[in-house]
Design a protein around this nucleic acid. Structure first.
Length: 255
DNA sequence: AAGGGTCCCAACCGCGCGCGC
DNA sequence: CGCGCGCGCGGTTGGGACCCT
């Protein structure tokens, strides 16, 4: 589906470099060859691709194409508000460590996150207020349609999760041996609140936090000391208590 | 309507790290 | 030790799409 879409998109300026490597946009045929190669040989050994798959691309180009575009687990479509809040929080914590941030967003690539942040936040911070408002409005308009869809998804998600959240809280309350972070009461209260009024949170960050909790992507505060890290590690590993709770947290690459 | 500005994103580049020889 | 190789990362570029004046 997307193969054809992209193939036609930039066609025409693919070129051969002095070493004989092709550069520029990938064709559907090249994508097909690369997919076939990974099916047969798995990821890695990218410099063998040219020889084994008959591609006139260097290893670097192949790896990039696979990682950023062809991997089947990649998510398509706009960054959701939930993902956006995670990006902001993790960027505040880690800076431009895009691959690290990407590990907390399954299906998103470092390149995607980097591009997103650059376009939406880097410049925005410097803009004068009216221009900033314009940009914001434009952005919001663009996202409106997507947000509606996302909200529908969340509604479904939350309905499913409400029961699960209650079960988890009961489980955690029962289990006195479990190390809970010091702010667990507030977290619990937040979860109870969203269980009852899932769509009435107005504060963006708070909403992001609760979405994170429900999806298992816990937002991470600025780490000021080791104790903080320890506490967050405790919360991060809630999936030890309940397997489904953190199903989207930390991809295989991260571990 | 036009053209200049901005957004968006795929792809490239340079650098550094780890590893094996 | 040092060299080459493979790989991953962050920064940058280029060009089409879209928006604004």
């Amino acid at each position: 589906m997307y193969l054809g879409m992209m193939a036609g998109h930039h066609m025409g300026w693919g070129r051969i470099e002095e070493e004989g490597w092709r550069k520029g946009p990938w064709t559907a045929e090249e994508d097909g060859l690369l997919i076939e190669y990974v099916k047969l040989h798995g990821e890695g050994r990218w410099n063998s691709v040219a020889r084994l798959a008959g591609l006139k691309r260097n290893g670097k180009s192949c790896r990039l194409r696979w990682v950023n575009y062809l991997r089947p687990e990649l998510k398509r479509g706009q960054i959701t508000p939930h993902e956006e809040s995670i990006i902001l929080e993790l960027h505040a914590r880690w800076g431009n460590r895009w691959s690290t941030i990407a590990r907390s967003l399954p299906g998103r690539t470092d390149n995607e996150i980097k591009n997103y942040w650059r376009t939406h936040f880097k410049k925005k911070a410097k803009l004068p207020s009216d221009a900033s408002d314009k940009a914001k409005n434009r952005f919001l308009r663009r996202k409106q349609f997507h947000n509606q869809q996302h909200q529908q998804q969340q509604q479904q998600h939350l309905q499913v999760n409400q029961e699960e959240v209650k079960r988890i809280m009961a489980l955690l309350d029962e289990n006195n041996d479990t190390k809970l972070p010091c702010f667990w009461p507030q977290v619990k209260q937040g979860m109870e609140t969203i269980s009852t009024y899932p769509h009435h949170t107005t504060d963006h960050q708070e909403q992001g936090f609760y979405y994170s909790m429900l999806n298992g992507n816990v937002s991470v505060p600025e780490a000021s000391n080791n104790e903080d890290n320890f506490l967050w590690d405790g919360l991060w590993n809630l999936n030890d208590v309940h397997g489904n709770f953190s199903s989207t947290c930390a991809t295989g690459k991260a571990s």
